[in-house]
Design a protein around this nucleic acid. Structure first.
Lengths: 207, 207
DNA sequence: CAGTGTCTCCCCCACGCGGGGGAGCGCGTC
DNA sequence: GACGCGCTCCCCCGCGTGGGGGAGACACTG
């Protein structure tokens, strides 16, 4: 396992916790993203505990580079301090295998590591759930907006970046008809323009 | 624990697996969303295994209703058949505590249940990860688009649904300046209009 | 049967938006 | 100092967009 964190104190703490386990072993420590990438290539660890905020290259960028450039990349657990951290999704999109809070209890930390090592699963700490669900309530808003089937179709096509003319061609109707549907969607969603409608669609998980 | 699935075969299979465990007990079975909601109110289970596709009210809607209307709601594990199921995010946003594939091995299923019961954690099966990371590669596209700091600011404000004039007011610059930045953003992201730019921002995890 | 709702199409009009061009300023680099 | 670059501001122009109005066809329901 490789530890990547710019604070030595954190690295030491993690090392103590991890080395106490018979089945886990720390093979190296990196202080920034560049070091992390280099050490991954050289030491070929099976797991990396990756801090987000680091000098030179942050943990997200490092994760992305590792996943996209290293053959048979290690499992990467992104570790961060704040539970309201907006990096969660970005971490997963960058190719991380898991996400964890630094203040998690050691047994949870070890469990997360084992889960990631063993299978290919993601373990989310509790507080992170809020990030996934922070937009709750709103889907109902969109759901209860009472969009008709046609209006939903149009909204979906709007959310692909199409113009009214393109939507019209896609649905085999006139552009005027699409305009009507779009207008109805905007009214029902109580938004000003198509951009806000698309945002509402994304925020509510509609797309 | 409550099982909610429209296929009796599935319910039976789950019941057999679960009842074999000493610490887990199935207290009821629901065949659709309405039943599930009613039984949650009546039986007050601590966990619900919720299928997505069900008659009357689907599992997502049922989850949302339970979470938003039941006092002290049970933990809800959404169970689905397909690993390319786009319902994952919607499930989490609806308030589900976890997501699981039906074809998961029984021990994984039981582990997921225990994780959800014990703490408040989310367990993602492997294939689900692709959903979180399906837009990978693209963030780099956006990242490598070479947006300047100001352009990033403008893009973020665009992604909140603001007009150029509002962005201008927010940044204390003229609307013409904002137009220039917007134009640069569109060019660098290779998109046609602000709606597509916002979509790109969402798809790449920029927001 | 009448009423409601949805989908379809049309008109006019104001305006935000994006594309084209140019231009000055401050900054750091070579 | 020259140069590149980012930020700022301005012009004109075409057009997609959204708001206002109306209207006919069809299906479903009370």
């Amino acid at each position: 396992m490789l530890l990547a964190d710019d604070e030595e104190l954190i690295r030491t703490g993690l090392r103590v916790i991890i080395d106490a386990e018979a089945d886990l072993e720390v093979v190296g420590e990196a202080g920034d993203g560049v070091d992390a990438l280099e050490m991954v290539r050289r030491l070929k660890p099976d797991v990396v505990l990756m801090d987000v905020r680091m000098p030179t290259v942050d943990g997200l960028e490092a994760t992305e580079r590792i996943v996209s450039t290293v053959a048979d990349p290690p499992k990467i657990l992104v570790v961060t301090t704040f539970d309201n951290d907006e990096y969660v999704y970005q971490a997963l999109r960058a190719g991380a295998d898991g996400f964890l809070l630094k203040r998690a209890r050691p047994d949870r930390l070890l469990e997360a590591i084992r889960v990631v090592v063993r299978g290919d699963s993601l373990l989310f700490p509790a507080a992170i759930r809020d990030l996934a669900t922070r937009h709750r309530g709103r889907p109902s808003a969109l759901r209860r907006a009472g969009l008709t089937e046609r209006e939903e179709q149009v909204l979906r096509l709007m959310a692909t970046g199409r113009t009214n003319a393109e939507i019209a061609a896609e649905l085999y109707v006139s552009a005027e008809t699409v305009k009507t549907h779009v207008g109805n969607v905007l009214g029902k969603l109580r938004v000003r323009d198509r951009t806000q409608a698309v945002i509402a669609a994304y925020e509510s998980g509609f797309v």
